[in-house]
Design a protein around this nucleic acid. Structure first.
Lengths: 130, 130
DNA sequence: CGTATAGTTGGATCGTTGTCAAACAATTAG
DNA sequence: CTAATTGTTTGACAACGATCCAACTATACG
């Protein structure tokens, strides 16, 4: 059974974590993990609207950033958030991101009913010479 | 006097904000703004280790993500964090990122002594075997 | 006016990233 | 063993992003 490399707590980099969370697909995965606790890749990637391999790359990005932990059991990979590690290194960060994610508009990720709030356009009347 | 376009509060996107904060140079700028309240571009970009125009592009990224507000006065551009707007849309997010940034290793951004809180090196002895 | 200051804009370059498709690997079921 | 399930890896490709340089705009100062 292969052991996937995870960064240790001391190696967690704020910018890499923010970067990992800044993709709609990955953020959705993180939100699902926060709700479910532990998911297989299939569970976490269900209806994400991206190809299986794309999702796999996102799992890797999240893992290498230290956001998730992946445990391989048989043919299933169980993913979970590294809540404690993240909390130890960056207290409150994950919680506030998750809380923000629940307040955010549904990102264009899951096809199920995220038609969006009719695109409130920016005023932007003052367009300066662009 | 030109008015730069800023996204309205309702248009703030979590992933774009996280993306804007996920660059070491931009995060450093944000940290400086948090400490100073308001800075000119020259002030915010002092000793960042990047070219003037690169910094300018970062200002734009931060502005378009809704993280900073830029006010033009004469030939100076004053930048400040959109604390209230960010707090209204994503409560606690900015605070936790700033708090995390102060805990983080000094990113390879400011070579010399920056205005920040006392660059403390982390031991980083425990390597997870990557 | 001419010059200095403050910052933006527009290439150009080069590395990174998100995506899909197809092949592959590993485990489990028949 | 054969096939199905689960996920990764590799390759290709377009899009993005960070950077520098040069040119440009706009204000201020002499």
């Amino acid at each position: 059974m292969r052991v996937l490399p995870h960064p240790s707590v001391g190696d967690l980099r704020l910018t890499e974590i923010l970067r990992a969370l800044s993709d709609p697909v990955r953020l959705e995965i993180v939100v699902r993990l926060a709700a479910a606790g532990e998911l297989t890749c299939t569970g976490a990637g269900h209806d994400l609207g991206v190809h299986k391999s794309t999702a796999s790359h996102h799992y890797r990005t999240l893992r290498e950033a230290g956001v998730v932990m992946t445990k391989q059991e048989g043919r299933l990979n169980y993913m979970s958030l590294r809540r404690d590690d993240l909390e130890a290194r960056f207290p409150g960060l994950l919680a506030s991101v998750l809380s923000s994610a629940s307040r955010a508009d549904p990102e264009p990720t899951a096809p199920g009913g995220d038609t969006g709030p009719a695109a409130a356009r920016v005023p932007a009347g003052a367009d300066a010479g662009r």
